[in-house]
Amino acid sequence: MNTARLIEALSADVGPVRRAPLAKILSWVMVLGAVIAVCVMLATVGPRPGLAEAPVHFLALKLFFTMSLAIIGAVVLFSAMHPGRDLRRWSPYLLLPIVLVGAGGAVALALTPLAAWGTMMLGTHWAMCVVCIPLFATLPFALLIWALRKGAPTELWRTGAIAGLVSGSLGAAAYSLHCPDDSLPFVAIWYAGSILLCALIGKSLGPRLLRW
């Protein structure tokens, strides 16, 4: 095919083009993803018994950790939908919540006698945490991929990894309503670990799912 003919064809197809409402799409997908993750949690493991009486500060901490990761990640994803914007500009901020919780976990361990470290780190349901977070993240991940494809991502594995991380964070936020383990080292290891696992899965799926 002759390029000049293609250009003729393309330039006859013009009318005013409005900018794709990518911010709106992404925000709605984030809200919907969070709601769906909570619904899946309610439909499977259910909320922690006595959620209302549980220590508020631990629940707040878990939600703050997971939601801050999700929101910073969404900002990076917004850049990823626009060709030519540097993803690395906002990505380093993702380390902030992880480093804070990691440092908090280390301090909590330092203040605790060695004998109690095992229960602090493993909690009672670490395996549940590793299974549930990726499970709750699955549907939000699919939604995010759908939204990203409305844009024009050009760095596919990076975008996939961040999409995995964001959906993992939403999954972890939903899981925190079930999670009976109230300890900082537990959150630092198992929450962060499960979220990173989701990011790795997203990284490997990204190039295939996001290609255009």
Partner: peptide, 16 residues
Amino acid sequence: DTYDRSQPFTPWVYAI
């Protein structure tokens, strides 16, 4: 429709 008029054009095309 993914081009943002407030941003330079060259990096957008180049990334694509």
